[in-house]
């Protein structure tokens, strides 16, 4: 396993949010991190993206401590889409997406022809190519989210860490995004994503990791993870599990 945590505790201001977690991210899959608000899923994701330093334990990338690897090298392997982003002033969509190529460019950040091909590609895939010359600050929330996703994709890493990528998106764009993740996964990318919508996770992800109060409660295929007892224990929800009539995946219906 390329990405794993070992007895990892991490949090803010000396308070551990994620507690002694051992986790191996299965390679080549789409993995959803699920759990109620404040359970530590974003914190775990940030620790795996080396945004937060562990208080205890380690995160390993290919068997080595994440914090011992050169930041530029690691940026060619792991990309993170944060949950919230500032709205940059005076930056055009195409410039922002081009920033995703930073781990490959020289000190002045010059974009070469190969970079440009990748940039055009991800802008097409995320459906923002016609916004290329607009300012990021003038876009709607959903459009902006797709621009940030495009920047993360331009980083062209084998691993993608996404923190609630569907935020601000209308339903059709959410579905488009999940299909895009499927497509990227078929190209060989491993994708770890925090999601709120359990049914979306069950339908589009191969593997679910469920967290509660900083610990991993259960993990595995959607069929084995998504149970009525789990929903009761983790989310305090009375719900039934049915089969999705179209995708044949498990689906929860709240009572």
């Amino acid at each position: 396993m390329s990405l794993s945590t070992h007895n990892l505790s991490v949090g803010y201001h000396d308070k551990a949010i994620v507690k002694q977690v051992d986790l191996s991210i299965p390679e080549g899959k789409i993995i959803a991190l699920l759990g109620p608000n404040g359970c530590g899923k974003s914190t775990l994701l940030k620790a795996m993206a080396r945004i937060l330093s562990p208080m205890e334990g380690q995160v390993h990338w290919q068997g080595k401590n994440l914090h011992g690897i050169s930041s530029k090298k690691l940026a060619q392997q792991l990309a993170l889409l944060p949950q919230t982003q500032p709205i940059p002033e005076g930056i055009k969509v195409k410039d922002l997406v081009a920033y995703g190529r930073s781990p490959y460019t020289g000190f002045w950040g010059r974009i070469n022809r190969d970079d440009q091909v990748i940039i055009d590609n991800v802008m097409t895939e995320t459906g923002i190519i016609e916004l290329a010359d607009q300012l990021v600050s003038e876009l709607s929330g959903g459009q902006r989210q797709r621009v940030w996703l495009a920047m993360t994709l331009a980083q062209d890493t084998p691993y993608l860490l996404l923190d609630e990528p569907t935020t601000y998106m209308d339903l059709s764009h959410q579905v488009e995004l999940m299909h895009l993740l499927r497509k990227l996964n078929l190209q060989g990318k491993t994708i770890v994503t925090v999601l709120h919508d359990i049914n979306q996770a069950a339908r589009y992800c191969d593997y679910l990791i469920v967290m509660k109060q900083g610990e991993i409660v259960t993990q595995g295929m959607p069929e084995s993870v998504l149970t009525e007892t789990m929903l009761k224990d983790v989310f305090s929800l009375n719900a039934q599990i049915h089969q999705d009539p179209i995708a044949q995946t498990p689906m929860c219906v709240v009572e």
Partner: peptide, 15 residues
């Protein structure tokens, strides 16, 4: 340019 995108993105981009 990259720190302008927030610390999280900047670090993820290798800064």
């Amino acid at each position: 340019n990259l720190i302008h995108l927030g610390d999280d993105s900047a670090i993820s981009l290798g800064i």
